[in-house]
Simulated assay, not measured.
Amino acid sequence: MTDTHDLISRNAVFAAERFTSGLRINPSGNMMVVGCVDPRVDPSHVLGLSLGEAAVIRNVGGRITPATLRTMAMLGKVGQANPEGRPEGDWNLVILHHTDCGMTDLAPYHDLLAEYFEIPVDELPDKAVSDPYESVRRDVDILLSELRGSQFLVTGLVYDVDTGVIDTVVPPTPLRTP
């Protein structure tokens, strides 16, 4: 079992050997990743991201929900308040779903999922909770419609927990203009 002592010891190694000082609040890589809380699928590890390279949002299933959109809006305001060091160019919003997701285990819990997605129960089939390839397409579509006119590219990826390989389901796609 990992306990607090283990965490403090690991942090001491991190601080001594891998810590990078001087990082800014804005990601250095013009990237935000939305991924699942599943401990097998840490977006920073599976995508090879460095500390400070991307903003990472994690939730159940890595889904684009109204709460995710609100979080993204808040992070946008933080970025606007801290313009120094903000890289030029388009931002890439990466949606990372994965195989063998626990979201599939929630499929029978219609009321719980409807509350999570903030939709009526009869709209749950539109969320494709049991198919990571289709769910990533649906979530990319939400971003493409919700964030129109912004300077973003949206990418949809699926990570295979058995092989460690990522499939590009939706290549970097510019947001539609209003």
Rank of each mutant, 00 (worst) to 15 (best):
L113T: 07
Y116H: 12
I95Y: 06
A73W: 08
P66H: 03
G89L: 03
L112S: 13
A67F: 08
L113S: 10
A81W: 07
M103G: 04
P87G: 04
H97I: 01
G102F: 06
A67E: 14
L112T: 10
A107P: 06
T104Q: 11
E53A: 06
G85F: 03
G85I: 10
K77R: 09
I64R: 00
N82I: 00
A81L: 14
A55I: 03
E53I: 00
A67V: 10
D111E: 15
V78H: 03
G52Y: 01
A67G: 12
H110I: 08
M74A: 15
A107V: 14
M103T: 11
R70G: 11
P83V: 07
I95K: 00
M72T: 06
Y116K: 05
H98E: 02
A55R: 09
M74V: 14
A55V: 10
A55W: 14
H110K: 15
E115W: 11
N59W: 08
D100T: 04
E118M: 08
L106P: 02
T68S: 12
A54P: 05
E84D: 15
D105W: 03
D105T: 09
I95L: 15
L112M: 15
G85E: 11
R63F: 07
G102H: 04
G79P: 02
T99E: 10
A54V: 04
G85W: 00
A55Q: 13
E115N: 14
C101T: 03
D90S: 14
M72P: 02
E84G: 11
L106Q: 06
E84T: 09
T99L: 06
T99Q: 01
E118A: 14
G52R: 00
L96H: 00
L112Y: 09
Q80E: 15
R86V: 15
T68E: 09
V60R: 00
K77F: 12
T68Q: 01
G52N: 02
E53K: 01
N92R: 13
P108R: 02
H98I: 07
G89V: 04
L113G: 10
I57E: 13
P66Y: 07
P83G: 02
M103L: 15
K77G: 09
M72S: 03
W91I: 14
T99H: 05
T71A: 14
A81E: 13
V60M: 13
G79E: 11
P108I: 07
V94L: 02
L112H: 12
Q80M: 13
V56P: 07
Y116F: 15
M103F: 06
P108T: 10
D111L: 11
I95Q: 00
V94S: 00
D100W: 02
P108F: 09
N92C: 12
L112N: 03
L113E: 09
Q80W: 00
I57L: 14
A54T: 03
M74F: 13
L106A: 12
E84C: 08
A54E: 05
I57C: 06
A114G: 05
H110F: 01
E53L: 00
L93W: 08
P108K: 05
T71Q: 11
C101E: 03
L112K: 10
A55H: 13
D111H: 12
H97K: 10
T104C: 04
E115Q: 15
G76S: 13
N92S: 12
E84R: 02
A114W: 02
V56D: 06
L112A: 11
K77H: 12
L112D: 13
Y116V: 08
L106G: 03
G76D: 15
T104F: 05
G85R: 00
V60G: 05
L112P: 05
A114F: 00
E115L: 10
